[in-house]
Design a protein around this nucleic acid. Sequence first.
DNA 1: ATCCATGGCTAAAACGATTTAGTTCTTATC
DNA 2: GATAAGAACTAAATCGTTTTAGCCATGGAT
Lengths: 342, 342
Amino acid sequence: MKKVSISDIARKAGVSVSTVSFVMNDKAVKMRISREVIEKVENVAREMGYRPNQLARGLRTGKTKTIGLIVENIANAFFATLAKSIEDEAKRHEYKVVYCSTDNDEEKARELINMLSQRQVDGYIITPTLNLADDIRKLQAENKPVILIDRYFPQHEEIPAVLVDNYEGVAHGMETLIAKGYRKIALVSIETEMAHMKDRLHAYCDVLRRHGIPEEKSRVKIIPYNSDHEKALKEVETLLAGAGTDIDAVFFLTNYLGVLGIEVIKKLQIKVPEQLAVICFDDNDIFRLYTPTISVIRQPVEEIGKKAMLALVERLGHTGEESYPTTSSVRLTADLVARESI
Amino acid sequence: MKKVSISDIARKAGVSVSTVSFVMNDKAVKMRISREVIEKVENVAREMGYRPNQLARGLRTGKTKTIGLIVENIANAFFATLAKSIEDEAKRHEYKVVYCSTDNDEEKARELINMLSQRQVDGYIITPTLNLADDIRKLQAENKPVILIDRYFPQHEEIPAVLVDNYEGVAHGMETLIAKGYRKIALVSIETEMAHMKDRLHAYCDVLRRHGIPEEKSRVKIIPYNSDHEKALKEVETLLAGAGTDIDAVFFLTNYLGVLGIEVIKKLQIKVPEQLAVICFDDNDIFRLYTPTISVIRQPVEEIGKKAMLALVERLGHTGEESYPTTSSVRLTADLVARESI
DNA sequence: ATCCATGGCTAAAACGATTTAGTTCTTATC
DNA sequence: GATAAGAACTAAATCGTTTTAGCCATGGAT
């Protein structure tokens, strides 16, 4: 069974292709097509199960009603939830989503942008990798709107981003730990030059400094990005072995690291929070259900996705010639969810 | 800045559009284009940053090199992991993925199929909802291959599926519980007519019967599908309140239900496995890290995704006229991962 | 001198829509 | 009775590719 095309409808209804097109696009009245013809065409189209070919339509109009979503890894709970909220909001505006994971690989990210560009997506929502700013500028130069999420390029304010205030989030967590009397606070992060992670790290350093607490190199563990699970576990293990003596609290800077941390804590049977207070950036079912429950700096994930999609839709609405809506970046707040671990 | 098209290249290189097309598609030799012209075209294309428009290409060739992935909910860890393995395998075969979530809504699923069909995807991987078989048959009639995952239609063997043997998985878990001496085994499932869930339920009943253990209605809790989190929690709570007296073990038939169960167990401070043994279908980080660790029937998620994509690619390779590869459904095994909870 | 083969390209149709600029009737207007 | 103004449509160009059929030299065989 072949697909039915607009000319099949035209033939069967005994009218021209143009007429069918007008009827299908609600331009029939404007084009003064008669009541009878409109009904005739609509009936034939319904009977034959006509569905316009979006490729042809996209080729002609230049709009595909599709957006490209590039995340780090769709299997990660954070990005999966983000993806869902973007999908839902996109649907509300009649957009479809093509998604891809970069695995944090710069080269792969570039390829993905090319792929999506070849598929003529109308706009992009991107979790960028390092050095991707130039490629993104090119998209903008082609008049394709781009919204960054989760991460941003501080030196490129012309690329709008929707994200939380990472610095404030961590600072708030740190202040709370210090207020509770913890002084030997350790930090676990991943190796990256991306600004959002640097912000988190800076907050840690700044708050310590502000309270006159010396920064001990031995308390800061930066996991190399390409470490496998086992290797990363080992690294965290050496750090947390000092629980109760060298360190009295630990701040995990990402979701993934926090889960890793729990694994180590469980293995070493560290008493939380007696021997070690724990706080993590980003929530996760585990943190809510582990015993003791783990305190987190919670990002409003759904809101990020929704706001990003809205910002994109706003830009997509404008035809390009008119003055662009320069709604710049959106910064949300990441709140502390204090649980038993601190 | 506008996109460069094939005719821009042709003009600049001083050749015809056809020649450029041949060169770009590695048909230059077959079409006996001279060395010099080939190089000339390649250089111009590179300089101008030419990227073929996939819409136009798809319109002409009828192939978009895109597959549609329909899952229940991309935010769910199980489907997110599945999606990632499908994406990875698709990439290996030069396919892109457009994904959508049904939220288990039949009508939405139908709409999604229509959407994807309008976008001319080459094939589909679908987590079906109830009553979707006819719509899927239509896709097959249009010569679009479809592979089901996670679920299947027992009365439609002509729709291939990649999934685990749900019956065996649950039966194995039940046998293990019984072998360990548990007799008052409760069950938590969700309300659905889908075959994969019925299989799991039947395994529970059959194993009990085989061991002459009476089936108590009060030990089986079926959560209505549209229950919100709070309501579902309440339901599970009433069941688990009987831990230690009315029931001595509980089998959660899905990942989501298991997490819900943990929440209740934590709240009621039920001793696992002393008061209550726990086993869940599908693994999850939480089960591995909770104290005590929770036993599960583990599905090989990555393998399901990979096998499904491979089955699809195999069908996509065949042009349609030839005899179809009737590699029927793939059934994998779901193994028991015995942990501290039993 | 004619024919055929082959090498090296190009013209033009086709894919399935949208959209601009007509065309052909009526009917009203002066 | 000629002209203008709608009303109700349609023809054809266009989007950017792929692909089939064919054109035009050149050179060797007859």
